[in-house]
Each structure stands twice: as structure tokens, then as C-alpha cells.
Amino acid sequence: MARLTQEQKKLNHDKILDAAGRGFRTHGVNGIGIADLMKAAEMTHGGFYNHFGSKDDLALEVIRQGFVSSLAALADIREEHPHSARAALDHMFDQYLSVEHRDRPEDGCASAALVTDAGRHGVAAQSEYQHGLEGFFSAITEMVLENARQSDVDMNVDQARERAIALFSQMVGALVISRAVAESSPELADEILQTNTTRLKQA
């Protein structure tokens, strides 16, 4: 039997990670089994352990990679508005609290889709989630500080971080609550997104 090349191993690893990212975001870590994840990745069940020691190990990497992707998207938003931190913040609010983001958790940010899983899967999962949070807090703190400078508002780093934490927490909370009622009350779900987007832009 031919041995897999390192390139093919990497491709297979990434296929499993992608399938798990979508599956975990949609169903939760406990809501989908390894067999179904491997089927989604178009691979055999037995091949899983060539790449991950356990489902918990996979979950940690999904959380880690999810935040890496989300922070890269946030960096892209910032680059789109090089001269206006306010415009970048508003763009972030619009994108994060969009109907599309709410209705497609499989493609969305790990911060909202995996928040409950991180809280329930022990210190290692919480540490990965914390690392991702700190990335968001740091990036948003910089944007808040820059917006203050551009608006001639006196603000220090501690104040900016406090605001960044509050802004991001409101974003995540609004998205999670909107998802919780999206099928039973689409109108309320949309109202939650719209109201919080408006309020965040006024902050």
C-alpha cells in the first residue's frame, strides 16, 4: 500500500478540521460524532486517529483555528478603512450582527458558535477560547483608541480595553440570543440584531 505524502496528510488533516469546524459550530461538540465528521470529510472512520488523539483534541484545534480565521477577517475589515477607525468599528458591527452570520453558524465566528462548548469542555478548551478572546479584545481596543484620537476624545488604554470588552460581549450576546429565537420568531430575531447594531454604533 502506498504511503501518504506529507502534503496528502496535511490535506486530510485540513479536511477533518474543516468538517469538524462546520459540524461543531452547527451541532455543538457533543452533538455530532466522529463517524459523522469523517463521513462529512469523505474519509473513513478509522483514519481519524492518524490525525487527532481524541475528539477533545480536535475540538481544541477547531476553537483555535476558528479564532484565527475570525481575527484575520477582522484585520481585513480594518484594512478596508485605513483612515477611519469609526468606519471599521461600524463595519465590524454590521458584519458580525448580520442575518447571514446568524443563519450560517457553520461558517461563522467561533466566539458565538462555540461559546457554550468552551464553557463545558474544561480548562484546555476555555484556555483556547480565552486566547481567541484576548485577540479580539486587543484588536478592538486598538480600534477604540484610534477612534478616540480621531474624534479628539481623551481616553487611556484601560478605558479603551473596558469599552472593547463591553462591545464584543454585546456583539456575541446579541448574536447568540438572536439565534435562539430565529425559527420561532424571525421578526424578534431580526429586531435583536438591528437594535444592538444601532446601539453599538452609538457607543
Rank of each mutant, 00 (worst) to 15 (best):
A2I: 15
K9C: 05
K9D: 10
K10L: 03
L11G: 07
H13D: 01
D14W: 01
K15N: 14
I16K: 00
L17S: 02
A20R: 01
A20W: 02
R22E: 10
G23F: 05
H27V: 00
G28S: 04
G31V: 10
G31N: 04
I32W: 05
A35H: 12
A35W: 06
D36P: 00
A40T: 08
A41Q: 07
A41F: 06
T44E: 10
G47V: 05
H51C: 03
G53W: 03
S54R: 09
S54T: 09
E61T: 04
V62A: 01
R64C: 00
Q65N: 11
G66L: 00
A72I: 01
A72V: 00
A73M: 13
I77D: 13
R78V: 14
E79C: 08
H81T: 12
H83A: 12
H83P: 10
R86T: 10
A87G: 09
A88Q: 08
D90P: 14
H91R: 15
H91V: 14
M92T: 15
M92D: 12
F93N: 09
D94T: 08
Q95P: 04
Y96V: 13
L97I: 11
S98G: 13
V99D: 10
P105W: 00
E106C: 01
C109K: 04
C109R: 07
S111Q: 07
S111P: 13
H121W: 06
V123G: 03
A124W: 03
Q130H: 08
H131P: 04
L133I: 08
L133N: 11
G135L: 06
S138C: 10
L145M: 12
R149V: 11
R149P: 02
S151R: 01
S151K: 02
V153C: 03
D154N: 06
D154H: 05
M155L: 13
A160Y: 07
A160M: 10
A166T: 14
L167E: 11
L167P: 02
F168P: 07
M171C: 15
V172K: 13
V172D: 11
L175E: 07
V181F: 06
V181N: 05
A182P: 00
S185M: 02
S185N: 08
A189E: 05
D190P: 00
D190G: 00
I192G: 01
Q194K: 15
Q194L: 15
R199S: 15
K201P: 01
K201I: 08
K201F: 06
